Amino acid sequence: MNQKNNDFSKIMLERRSVRHYDETFKIPHDEMLEMIQEAITAPSSVNLQPWRFVVVESDEMKAKLKPLIRFNTLQNETSSAMVLIFGDMRCHDRGEEIYDLAVEQGKMPSDVRDEQLAAIIPYYENFSKEKMTSVVTIDASLAAMQFMLVARTHGYETNPIGGFEEDLLAEAVGLDKDQYLPVMIISVGKAMTDGYESSRLDASDVTTFK
Rank of each mutant, 00 (worst) to 15 (best):
A118R: 14
T158S: 15
K64H: 09
R94I: 00
S141H: 08
M89Q: 09
D194W: 05
P67D: 03
E77N: 12
M108S: 07
Y99I: 03
I186A: 10
D88T: 04
E96K: 12
N76A: 14
F147R: 05
A144C: 09
T133Q: 13
V112S: 06
L175E: 05
A140I: 02
P160Q: 11
I98C: 03
K64R: 15
M108A: 06
D178N: 15
A170C: 05
L142S: 06
P160A: 11
A140P: 02
E197P: 03
D100V: 00
E171M: 02
V150F: 06
G162Y: 11
H154Y: 15
T78R: 02
A143W: 07
D178R: 08
V183I: 15
Y123P: 00
F209R: 12
T158D: 09
I185S: 04
S187Y: 05
I161T: 05
L74P: 00
A203M: 11
Y156Q: 04
Y180A: 04
K107M: 13
L168S: 14
T158C: 15
V83F: 07
Q146W: 08
L149H: 13
P122K: 10
G163W: 09
T137W: 05
I186S: 08
E130L: 07
R152Q: 14
A172M: 15
E157G: 02
I185T: 07
M145Q: 13
R70W: 14
V188G: 00
A102M: 12
L65N: 07
S198L: 03
Q179N: 12
R200C: 06
E115G: 10
V135M: 13
R94T: 02
F147W: 10
L169P: 07
S198T: 14
T208K: 15
S79G: 07
I85H: 04
M184K: 04
A143H: 04
I161P: 02
N159W: 01
E130F: 04
A172F: 03
D111C: 03
I138Q: 11
K66S: 12
G155T: 08
T207C: 12
L68W: 08
Y180Q: 04
A140K: 00
S204V: 11
K64Q: 15
Y124T: 00
E197S: 12
I85S: 01
T137Q: 09
P122D: 10
F164V: 04
V136E: 03
V183S: 07
K129Y: 09
G195Q: 11
N159Y: 03
F127W: 15
A144P: 03
I120A: 10
V103K: 05
V103P: 10
R94G: 10
L84K: 02
R152D: 06
L68K: 01
Q116T: 03
Q75N: 14
G95E: 11
Y180H: 08
D178G: 13
G155E: 12
E165L: 12
G174K: 08
M89I: 01
L101R: 14
E171H: 04
M145I: 10
L201I: 04
A203V: 11
D139M: 10
P67L: 08
E157H: 13
A140G: 09
E125W: 01
K210G: 02
E96Q: 15
K64P: 01
F164W: 08
N126C: 01
M192F: 04
L168H: 08
L117K: 11
S199W: 14
D111E: 14
D194C: 00
E125Q: 15
I185V: 14
F127G: 02
P67G: 06
E77Y: 03
S134V: 00
V112L: 14
D111A: 10
F71R: 05
